[in-house]
């Protein structure tokens, strides 16, 4: 699970090693990555929103 999250987080920055993505793509089902991507995407929105609201006071 942590491996999946790590991969998706790297993807957000647009950086990935060849071996790592090979490993990722060996895993068969992309579902785990898609779900993690969506969840982390929403998390990003939430974090940005919280930061913005907090800064805005």
């Amino acid at each position: 699970m942590w491996g999946v999250i790590k991969s998706v987080l790297w993807a957000f920055l647009g950086v990935q090693r060849d071996e790592q993505r090979r490993e990722d793509f060996e895993k068969g089902s992309p579902l785990a990555f898609i779900i993690t991507g969506v969840v982390l995407g929403l998390l990003l929105v939430a974090i940005l929103a919280v930061v913005a609201v907090w800064v805005a006071g």
Partner: peptide
């Protein structure tokens, strides 16, 4: 960085 290219495209899309 082929893999990075793919992932960066995905990130830009999101």
């Amino acid at each position: 960085g082929y893999a990075s290219m793919v992932y960066a495209t995905g990130a830009i899309a999101v």
